[in-house]
């Protein structure tokens, strides 16, 4: 069930798991949209020639996935801040899972903090971050 107000948030709760579309098609379209059309984001073979294990999902697309996940959980949430660390490449066409956990709830000002992780099928963390989110007071 979607979260509407701060009163519905429970400290320590897990956000519903989000499976982002990390296909090469999406990564490639995104890279071209933001002007990063090089092979490392658009072509597995070209990326391998650059020494990468395959084409990558752009880091800021991963950040966008994290925010989309929060909006799926709480559609009226306003992102006040999000900080992400790109620990290792997210390889396109590999399945990744995003998880999030509420690490702080302030019912007075309506803000929550959420720790977020993008992991691959081996359970390896590729991207992690923290978001501060404003929710309606109700």
């Amino acid at each position: 069930m979607a979260i509407s107000t701060i009163q519905e948030v429970v400290f320590g709760e897990d956000l519903p798991t989000f499976i982002p579309d990390t296909s090469l098609a999406i990564a490639s379209q995104f890279a071209k949209l933001v002007g990063w059309g090089g092979p490392r984001f658009t072509d597995h073979e070209g990326a391998r020639k650059e020494g990468l294990p395959g084409a990558m999902v752009p880091g800021i697309l991963n950040q966008g996935y994290l925010v989309a996940m929060i909006h799926h959980w709480a559609p009226d949430a306003e992102i006040k801040a999000i900080d992400t660390v790109f620990r290792a490449p997210v390889i396109a066409d590999e399945k990744h899972t995003i998880s999030g956990v509420v690490t702080d709830v302030n019912e007075e000002d309506g803000q929550v903090e959420i720790d977020l992780t993008v992991a691959n099928e081996k359970g390896e963390t590729r991207v992690f971050g923290t978001a501060t989110v404003q929710l309606p007071l109700g």
Binding site: P20, F30, V67, A68, H71
Partner: peptide, 13 residues
């Protein structure tokens, strides 16, 4: 561009 950005990120709002 912002709409396409949102769509590719998986936003539905």
């Amino acid at each position: 561009k912002t709409i396409e950005y949102a769509r590719l990120c998986g936003e539905t709002a």
